[in-house]
């Protein structure tokens, strides 16, 4: 039987992380979905003041304990509400955290394309201090992040920007609920010329597509060649070819919905 720590202060948590390698347990919906849980766990659900999503003049802050249900009940941009409502079932939404979705670093994570399109930053903390990473620099590959063993992800910062955000999230799955994305698309427009399009489940890490953005802004028809940055795979859900075809369609629809 391993260690199960449930600290009640951030200092205790960081000291524990500095002392020994521990698997951080937040919602637990990824960890406990495995047949065996990790040997040594640091349960962060007793840490104070890290549950409430806060709204600041220039950004929102989603702390590490905020669940998808918290996201749904917040004033975060609409595409995060759309993603939150489609993550697992209500049971998972009530337990799983947005930050956990990033840390689990699944290629099909629904939160990642949305937060990338919003230009989110990840705030990490350890005994040696805090640092802020762009989300695209935080997720390194499938199940791999830039988090050091002694660090905790404190939360995610989402820049507000000056103009209202127009956004859309499209998720394609083979059934209505409880479905892993075949492909997903997040589109965020902060200004007529500021468009970000990020695709999930079609590369090792969800991927922003500047070529597609340029084509869309120029009013050019979207083509498969614009998706060169993607590297979809064949798996039980779909083939790579289908994913490419579907992504183009999802992008068209998402964009039509925001203009």
């Amino acid at each position: 039987m391993g260690v199960y720590l449930r600290p009640t202060t951030l200092e205790q948590a960081l000291a524990a992380l500095a002392a020994a390698p521990l698997t951080i347990l937040a919602g637990g919906t990824d960890l406990y979905a495995l047949p065996q849980t990790a040997p040594d766990l640091l349960d962060i659900t007793r840490l104070p003041d890290l549950r409430t999503i806060s709204s600041h003049p220039d950004h929102w802050f989603v702390p590490c304990r905020a669940t998808w249900t918290d996201v749904l009940r917040s004033d975060l941009p609409a595409l995060l509400h759309q993603a939150a409502a489609q993550v697992g079932g209500r049971q998972v939404q009530n337990t799983a955290t947005l930050v956990g979705n990033l840390c689990n670093a699944s290629p099909a994570a629904d939160g990642v394309p949305c937060l990338m399109a919003l230009g989110a930053q990840v705030e990490l903390v350890s005994q040696s201090g805090r640092r802020l990473l762009e989300l695209r620099d935080f997720i390194l590959g499938p199940r791999r992040t830039a988090r050091r063993a002694d660090e905790l992800v404190l939360g995610v910062r989402i820049p507000r920007g000056a103009a209202p955000i127009r956004s859309e999230f499209e998720k394609l799955g083979a059934r209505r609920y409880l479905v892993i994305s075949i492909a997903s698309v997040a589109v965020v427009a902060r200004a007529p010329s500021d468009l970000r399009i990020v695709v999930g489940a079609c590369s090792a890490v969800p991927c922003r597509l500047p070529e597609v953005e340029a084509a869309v802004l120029a009013g050019k028809p979207l083509q498969i060649q614009h998706l060169a940055a993607l590297s979809p795979i064949d798996d039980v859900r779909a083939t790579a070819d289908y994913r490419r075809t579907a992504v183009l369609q999802l992008i068209r629809r998402a964009y039509e919905n925001i203009v």
Binding site: Y4, R6, L25, G27, G28, T29, Y32, A33, L41, D43, T45, T69, R90, Q91, V92, N94, T95
Partner: peptide
Amino acid sequence: EQVCACLVPAAR
């Protein structure tokens, strides 16, 4: 709130 009891650690 509804949760899956199989995914919840006893400590919680």
